[in-house]
């Protein structure tokens, strides 16, 4: 085997075994700057709430559908202990801003052009969302997006909100 091919094999193996955040494991904490503010937002600031972390980018085709529906989700659960943190992965923030101007959302949108947070979560596809319970544990992971997924998500969020009340 040539050195070059061996390098390729090792790289592929590393890629395949990269740690992914699975349901049941604690979500990696992060501090990221929002588009419309200067001070960073931490995931751990939302401990005690059910949090949906959504990784998206302006070039991701399903995101044209997911952002408006997540905005409806936010509005529907506005009175509950629930928050959406959207992590944008565009290399150029201008692309993301243009997209947000077209598809405005009221939930928090954070910038991660380096993609290190996406790497920490071990994203398997775009978009990806992680539903995190009040204790900061990832409970559900969704790869890709279809409009029908929103019903599943609603049920899962409602169940997690209900569980939290239970424990308290």
């Amino acid at each position: 085997m040539s050195t070059r091919l061996r390098c390729a094999a090792i790289l592929l193996w590393v890629a395949a075994t990269a740690l992914a955040v699975e349901p049941g494991t604690p979500a990696p904490d992060f501090a990221l700057r929002p588009f419309d503010a200067t001070s960073p937002v931490r995931l751990s600031d939302y401990r005690g709430k059910v949090v949906l972390v959504d990784f998206w980018a302006s070039w991701c085709a399903p995101c044209r559908q997911s952002l408006p529906l997540y905005e409806q989700l936010r509005a529907g659960f506005a009175a509950e202990d629930f928050a959406i943190l959207a992590v944008n992965l565009d290399e150029d923030a201008a692309d993301a801003r243009a997209f947000l101007a077209q598809h405005p959302v009221k939930y928090i949108t954070l910038q991660n052009p380096q993609g290190d947070i996406a790497r920490a979560f071990g994203l398997k596809g775009m978009p990806s969302s992680y539903l995190i319970d009040r204790d900061g544990v990832v409970r559900e992971r969704h790869v890709g997006f279809e409009p029908a997924d929103i019903d599943t998500l609603k049920r899962e969020i409602a169940a997690l909100i209900a569980q939290g009340r239970h424990a308290s």
């Binding site: 390729a8 790497r119 596809g125």
Partner: peptide
């Protein structure tokens, strides 16, 4: 092409153009 570095899903913005 076999020596290609793996491209993460979030790094495909240019390829999606």
């Amino acid at each position: 092409g076999c020596a290609a570095t793996p491209v993460a899903p979030w790094e495909r913005g240019r390829l999606a153009r």
